[in-house]
Design a binder for these strands. Structure first.
Length: 922
RNA sequence: GGGCCGGUGGUCUAGGGGUGAUGACGGCGCGCUUACAACGCGCAGAUCGGCGGUUCGAAUCCGCCCCGGCCCA
């Protein structure tokens, strides 16, 4: 295991000269230690520029993935690791298949979030942020950016991601800003970007507008206050008459313009049309009706506050007689304005809430107060409760673009994987709201709009105008706001390739081949990119969206920097190696709680697998040193096991290819894991060991070496996209051609022959070998005991084994027996324990006097009970006339064959149970 | 309020009409057998959330219910 080294995360450590020499002379080190070669290969790939996408002109075959740009706010999390790994896998796979491949890295300036982070950082350092000018703040953010950028790049490299750093893009660099400006201007000229006063989400702490997506509904324990709005008639009011309204936000009361009830609500019928007094004021408000009112909530009456609630605003718009605006809360969240009584002005909203409730209580207007849990929108950035507010902002009209993006997915031009996200996508796109894109912060792309101070006209410009085109005045000022970060992100698939310029890269590498990202940003990013690609290039930006899961911690919370529950990937990589980390991400291993990430458990599993790969290579490698390449031997004449493993490899290669094509990355990893460990290592290697060692002679050794090299070298090629470093390292120790596995050819299943006969024969043999192992354990023999073994074939495949010369030796090796022989019709030897498998009867004679070798064969008895049970079930089925009548003939035949096999097997089992060999032998 | 997803051995998971339910981890037993104890071999452990239906046949399809989780209001 690697020592966790420098806390900051070490840069790739060069291999010591001593170690390098040692490796060359003595083959592979005994221990799998990723620290010894991962950094070496990362530098090698970088030096040779193997991941630099070729510069090609014109459209043509290509494979492009743009990495979802991490935010410059901090360092990468496991979520980025997962994305990077899946995308790198796809890129390495396609690169090996020979496509011009571009894996493009980048960085997002992340507007509001970054400004927040830098502010916090500066405050911690004692800088008075308030005194900094816009330019000074920009400079500070740039410093921050450079620092984070360097670390993020190191993190990505440490994963072994095959990115083309020569094409790195940062969203605030000039050419990207130009793309943002162009997008804004284009939409502005088409009237798709407009300025309007709307109800928006206001963050009173950051004092900026936010889009709907940046508002996080949070379940909050609040209260519901029942407030009596007194009758306008003072006499009645004095008697306590009035109309009771329930509200969660009493502090907005001064902004009320009406009280609304549902028109169908009979309880309130008599009140409709009358006026009540607004508490704590001398103003009256009418009681109106509106369909939107839920009669079951509170008293069934809602106070209408058009400036501070979305629903209320809409109600007010439906009732033209009411004012649709009455601001009583300012941009800092304080009560202000002519409608607020003097004594409350300047109060912060929650303090005001308290004060108002107290005063209502004092005046006897507070009828009751109950606890109430509800969802309150909180700012994703500052986490304070959002204040809905009427404000003039810039919006994107998404109605037409949204429809087009919806159609594109409906038509299958863009496929979403896994498909279940389709419905979520549809649901969202069918209910699109205008997208608020202006932010009242300083960090971000400036809005290219200028206002004339003289004639008040405004317009958008490509370059800053000298004078107002309308009145000629030179007194102009630019819009002080900046654009929502996502307004630059949605251009990512093409702005990174040079758009709006018509670059060679844009022609060649657009559209992106597959967009991989976490399912949490389907709406933020994916939906908008589809809109953007269609709007600006008339082409969907990608044919596939591959959504990865979201990693969670033990409490089921999303891993994030923010919660501090996401370890730095570099720490994991230092401890376990990049390959083990990558494999763990792709091959979900058991964990404690639901979907939770337990590093120890997951990493151990994948590290153990890689150790297996390592040691298997150590077994095969020595015998292969004289081979010039990994071309397969003449397999037609090869030993059974060699033909079998070649055939299994071929199926594995096909399966991996199929699964990768379907984006079943986990499945592909599983298939490789299964093949390498449980076929190649457990069976082939165990059987071929003797030959590989040379003890069986030169010819057999070379044969085994050729097969081993051919299969293992090709398996490493299949493995490379998953675990690039170890595969590259081991590959160089085996016969191979080419300088790097990263650019070696992806193998096709046809490279090794499939052999149905060999597979059937080996399956039968495996049953025999397993049966002998079971018998050996059943007889309480120690693994080092060497009993004598026999088998009597029951099937053609098992009988074919009689013809295989090496089968006896191989069976002995695998089952740990002294000798192995087939019995034709002969009686089983005296004192033998027996078991009946579907393919053969197997017998084991314990060595004389072996400890614990006596005793009943519980295995035989258990097998008998099981088979007898199955047989009666099978017979019951066959006895059922409806089954025979209605089931397809093929199924009936299968069941009949099964009945035959089971009854024969049962007969044999019982025969052996009666036989004397199960008696304690002397 | 609307929408989506899931519930399979102790844990995590595969399988999405054909009857011995996959695998891994953990557990138990035996072993350091010259690739690998970061390992090998064997064993135990699940009426596939509940109820009802369709079918010759249901973990798999349909309906209702219960329990988790996610998203949008």
């Amino acid at each position: 295991m690697r020592e966790p080294s420098t806390p900051e995360g070490s840069a790739p450590r060069p291999l010591s000269e001593e170690r390098r020499r040692a490796e060359v002379t003595s083959g592979l080190p005994k221990r799998y230690d990723p620290a010894c070669f991962e950094p070496k290969w990362q530098s090698f790939w970088e030096e040779k520029q193997l991941f630099r996408a070729p510069e090609l002109d014109g459209a043509g075959p290509h494979w492009t993935i743009v990495f979802p740009p991490p935010n410059v706010t901090g360092v990468l999390t496991f979520g980025h690791s997962l994305q990077g790994t899946t995308e790198d896998l796809l890129c390495r796979w396609q690169r090996m298949k020979g496509l011009p491949t571009l894996f493009l890295p980048g960085l997002d300036h992340a507007g509001v979030a970054t400004q927040m982070a830098v502010r916090k950082d500066l405050e911690k350092k004692g800088v008075n942020v308030g005194t900094l000018s816009r330019e000074e703040l920009h400079a500070r953010i740039e410093e921050w950016r450079h620092e984070k950028e360097r670390y993020i790049r190191r993190q990505l490299t440490a994963h072994g991601l095959s990115m083309d750093w020569s094409r790195y893009v940062y969203t605030m660099e000039p050419r990207y800003s130009e793309a943002v400006r162009t997008a804004f201007l284009t939409l502005y000229r088409e009237g798709l970007v407009y300025r309007a006063e709307r109800m928006i989400n206001w963050d009173p702490k950051l004092r900026t507008a936010l889009s709907d997506l940046e508002v996080i509904p949070t379940e909050t324990q609040g209260k519901l206050w029942y407030i009596r709005y007194p009758d306008t008639d003072p006499a009645r009011a004095a008697r306590g008459e009035g109309f009771v309204v329930a509200t969660t936000r009493p502090e907005t009361i001064f902004g009320d313009v009406a009280v609304a009830v549902n028109p169908k609500d009979e309880r309130h019928g008599p009140w409709v049309g009358r006026k009540v007094l607004l508490p704590l004021t001398d103003r009256g408000v009418p009681i109106i009706t509106d369909e939107a009112i839920d009669p079951t909530f509170g008293t069934g009456a809602l106070k209408v506050t058009p400036s501070h609630d979305r629903v209320d605003h809409e109600i007010a718009l439906r009732h033209p007689e009411l004012p649709s605006k009455r601001d009583t809360i300012d941009d800092r969240g304080r009560l202000e304005g002519e409608f607020v009584p003097e004594r409350f002005r300047g109060m912060e909203r929650f303090a005001a809430r308290k004060a108002i409730v107290e005063e209502l209580r004092g005046q006897g207007l507070l009828v009751k107060e109950e606890l109430h849990v509800h969802n309150v929108g909180h700012s994703e950035r500052s986490e304070v409760p959002i204040e809905p507010r009427l404000s003039t902002q810039w919006f994107v009209d998404t109605s037409k673009m949204g429809l087009r993006a919806l159609e594109s997915v409906r038509k299958g031009e863009v496929r979403i994987i896994p498909e279940r996200w389709l419905k979520t996508y549809y649901n969202f796109m069918e209910n699109l709201e205008p997208w608020c894109i202006s932010r009242q912060v300083v960090w971000g792309h400036e809005i290219p709009v200028w206002y004339c101070d003289l004639c008040k006209a405004h317009d958008a410009f490509e370059v800053p105008p000298k004078a107002c085109p309308k009145c000629g005045s030179e007194a102009l000022h630019q819009d002080p706001d900046v654009l929502d970060t996502w307004f630059s992100s949605w251009l990512w698939p093409f702005a990174t390739l040079g758009w709006p310029k018509r670059t060679g890269d844009l022609a060649r590498y657009y559209p992106v081949s597959v967009l991989g990202t976490g399912s949490d940003i389907v709406f933020f990013w994916v939906a908008r990119m589809i809109m953007g690609g269609l709007q600006f290039l008339d082409t969907p930006p990608f044919p596939y969206v591959y959504l990865t899961g979201i990693l969670t911690d033990r409490q089921g919370r999303k891993l994030s920097k923010h919660l501090g529950n996401s370890p730095d990937p570099i720490e994991i990589i230092q401890q376990w190696g990049a390959d083990a980390f990558r494999f763990a991400l792709l091959f979900p291993l058991p964990v404690e709680d639901g979907g939770a990430w337990d590093p120890q458990k997951m990493m151990e599993g994948s590290r153990n697998f890689l150790t297996k790969v390592w040691n298997l290579t150590r077994l095969v490698e020595p015998a292969t040193s004289s081979l010039a390449d990994s071309s397969p031997p003449h397999l037609e004449e090869a030993p059974l096991m060699d033909r079998w493993i070649a055939s299994r490899w071929s199926h594995t290669a096909q399966e991996v290819e199929d699964r990768l094509s379907r984006f079943d990355l986990t499945g592909a990893a599983g298939v490789l894991h299964q093949f390498l460990w449980h076929e190649l290592a457990d069976w082939w290697a165990e059987a071929a060991k003797e030959r590989l060692s040379g003890r069986a002679g030169k010819g057999p050794q070379e044969q085994a070496a050729r097969t081993g090299a051919a299969v293992l070298e090709r398996t490493l090629r299949l493995l490379h996209p998953f675990v690039p470093h170890i595969s590259e390292e081991l590959w160089t120790h085996l016969p191979h051609t080419g300088e790097s596995l990263a650019v070696a050819a992806w193998p096709s299943a046809a490279e090794l022959p499939s052999d149905v006969g060999a597979e059937a024969t080996v399956s039968a043999w495996m049953e025999i070998a397993r049966g002998l192992r079971t018998l050996k354990a059943d007889a309480h023999l120690s693994p080092s005991a060497r009993p004598v073994a026999f088998a009597r074939p029951r099937t053609a495949a098992a009988a074919a084994l009689l013809q295989v010369p090496e089968v006896a030796a191989v069976t002995c090796a695998v089952a740990g027996a002294a000798s192995f022989q087939f019995l034709a019709g002969d009686a089983p030897p005296e004192g033998a324990r027996a078991l009946v498998t579907p393919s053969a009867e197997v017998f084991l004679v314990p060595p004389a006097g072996a400890a614990g070798s006596s005793g009943e064969s519980s295995a035989l008895r258990k097998e008998r009970d099981l088979v007898s049970d199955l047989l009666s079930k099978t017979r019951a089925r066959l006895a059922d006339a409806t089954f025979r009548g209605k089931a397809p003939p093929k199924v009936v035949q299968e069941v009949e064959a099964k009945e035959k096999e089971l009854s024969e097997r049962l007969r044999l089992l019982e025969e052996h149970l009666r036989a004397p060999e199960t008696e304690p032998s002397a």
